[in-house]
């Protein structure tokens, strides 16, 4: 049958292999279990506990002190973590890209990521407790950096090692010293890696569940934790608002990543 279609329209370059019907079960599944649930979140944001239409939830979220503290904490921890990851991760990626065996070595920086984050977080917590470190903001940021550093190193390493060496040689031939080469050539050429690294660290940091709670003994709550808590307490309306705020963060960052180039956008996929 598809054969006939291709014969009728020979101008079409790509030959259609099989019927698109094959994808219908999946499309249906996704509509039901991915799209519809998200629509329900949107609807729930406008409903009060008796299912009446209301804007009260927005008012609660944006005026209540506790939820603003969560928002502030999340953005603060997210920014600090991202900055530290960038400051630690950029040199790592840069040095690795200069080494001939960098491709193999970068593996060792990424491997710990495949061990469940809960296990790694509990391990760090046990060590902090044994060392008598007070759990608080500092330990939360440490835990986040420890967890998400590989997400920064990987896209940076890909971008840096794909820079054409001849640009660097050209800059040197034209008389630039090594710091000028770095600032004027290498850094601008790696901007796309920096942006994907930033989004790949920032979003998981503010949305993750359990890390901040475990590493601060329940003192510091970030977005992920408080969304879970709101739903646990049956406050679906406010929880939905927070989920929407989170969704906005995700969409904006994804938009940014798409703009800086497709090859970097694929990083996350190949990673997981």
């Amino acid at each position: 049958m598809t054969n006939a279609v291709a014969a009728v329209r020979p101008a079409r370059k790509k030959f259609k292999i099989t019927k698109r019907v094959f994808s219908y079960p999946y499309v249906l599944f996704m509509l039901l279990f991915v799209v519809l649930p998200l629509v329900m979140i949107l609807v729930n944001a406008f409903l009060d506990s008796d299912n009446n239409l209301t804007l009260e939830n927005f008012k609660i979220f944006f005026t209540e002190k506790s939820s603003l503290i969560v928002l502030g904490n999340s953005v603060f921890v997210g920014l600090v973590t991202t900055l530290i990851c960038l400051l630690i991760g950029y040199p790592v990626a840069y040095f690795l890209s200069k080494m001939s065996s960098g491709k193999v070595l970068v593996l060792f920086f990424v491997l710990p990521m495949w061990v469940n984050f809960l296990i790694r977080t509990l391990a760090t917590k046990a060590i902090f407790l044994a060392m008598d470190v007070t759990l608080g903001m500092g330990t939360v940021v440490f835990g986040m950096v420890y967890n998400y550093l590989p997400f920064m190193i990987l896209p940076l390493h890909t971008t840096l090692s794909s820079i054409d060496r001849s640009y660097i040689e050209a800059a040197q031939d034209l008389g630039a010293d090594s710091s000028t080469v770095f600032l004027k050539t290498i850094l601008p050429l790696s901007v796309s890696g920096i942006i994907s690294g930033i989004t790949m660290v920032f979003i998981p940091t503010i949305s993750t569940f359990a890390i901040s709670q475990l590493l601060s003994n329940g003192k510091i709550f970030l977005f992920g934790d408080s969304i879970q808590m709101k739903f646990d307490q049956g406050l679906y309306g406010v929880g939905s608002i927070m989920s929407i705020v989170m969704l906005v963060f995700v969409l904006v960052s994804n938009f940014l990543m798409n703009r800086v180039g497709r090859n970097n956008n694929n990083m996350g996929r190949s990673l997981w």
Partner: peptide
């Protein structure tokens, strides 16, 4: 699904691929 998507027209293919992206880019908690 991949075999089906591969034989789709450009427009419907783009829509399905975008929906397919969603669980990947979305944060797990949401």
């Amino acid at each position: 699904a991949a075999i089906g998507i591969h034989s789709m027209g450009r427009r419907s293919r783009r829509i399905v691929e975008n929906v397919n992206q969603f669980p990947i880019i979305n944060s797990e908690i949401v």
